[in-house]
Structure formats: C-alpha cells, structure tokens
C-alpha cells in the first residue's frame, strides 16, 4: 500500500493536501483497493459550503457504494471533472487524481487527521 508522506489522512480513508488556502481532497490507495474497480464518481456542486464530516459525493464500484465525507470544512471551489468520464483514474493513481478542492481560508482544523505513519498503522488494524 502506497501512502505519501506529505498528506493528511482521515479514518474514512480520504486524504487532504494543503496548498495555501486550498485543500485538495482524494481517496487513499487503501480505499480504492477496498472498493475495487470504480465505475462512477458523483462530484459535489461548486460553491457548496461543507461542514466537517459532511457528504461531498459518492463513489461507486461494481459491488459497492461509498459516501465521500469531507475530512475538512470549507467551500467547494473546484471539482475534478475528468472523473466523470474516467472514474478509473482513482484506481490508477488515487493521490494524483484529487476529487475536489476546498477553500480552507478558515482552516485551523486539520486536527483529527492522521499522518502517513499513523494512517498506515490504522489500516493495519483494519486488515487484521
């Protein structure tokens, strides 16, 4: 399992990458592996204000549907429209292919998220 060091992770297997005010959100390698072949990604609407832990979309595979919970609060300012035509991008490279970008201007709240190391340890408890 691949877990880049520069990201923050949630227990729901999302990652956040912070660039200035922007928070890029995606799903982890563990998540894409658990879901299997992803067939559809329902993206959030632009300008939607999201509280911590609120649903910002749904990811569907052939045999599963998973709600995407926002690991940080903020306003949706970009969505990755490539995923509409090619949801398999999330299987191919879950860390390069972000799902949405939130404006985190008021974000002191990356707390509760895990480092790569902590997330790896967390995933191991799930697999055992």
């Amino acid at each position: 399992m691949h877990t880049p060091e520069n990201l923050f992770y949630s227990k729901e297997h999302e990652w956040v990458r912070v660039e200035g005010n922007k928070g890029y959100i995606g799903i982890s390698d563990f998540a894409q592996h658990q879901l299997g072949d992803i067939v559809f990604v329902e993206l959030p609407e632009l300008d939607l204000e999201i509280n911590l832990g609120e649903s910002i979309g749904v990811i569907e595979s052939v045999k599963a549907a998973a709600t995407l919970f926002s690991p940080v609060p903020g306003t949706i300012i970009e969505v990755n429209e490539d995923l509409e035509e090619a949801p398999e991008l999330l299987n191919q490279d879950p860390y390069h292919n972000w799902i949405a970008v939130l404006d985190l201007s008021d974000s002191s709240r990356l707390e509760g998220l895990m480092s790569a190391e902590a997330y790896n340890a967390y995933c191991q408890t799930l697999e055992s």
């Binding site: 067939v39 559809f40 569907e60 595979s61 599963a64 549907a65 709600t67």
Partner: peptide, 12 residues
Amino acid sequence: LQAREQHIRREL
C-alpha cells in the same frame, strides 16, 4: 448500475 440498489447501498 447496481450500486444504486438496496443490496449494496442498504440504509443509504
């Protein structure tokens, strides 16, 4: 498109 259905989505 079975991910819409009860046997997968259950309470959702």
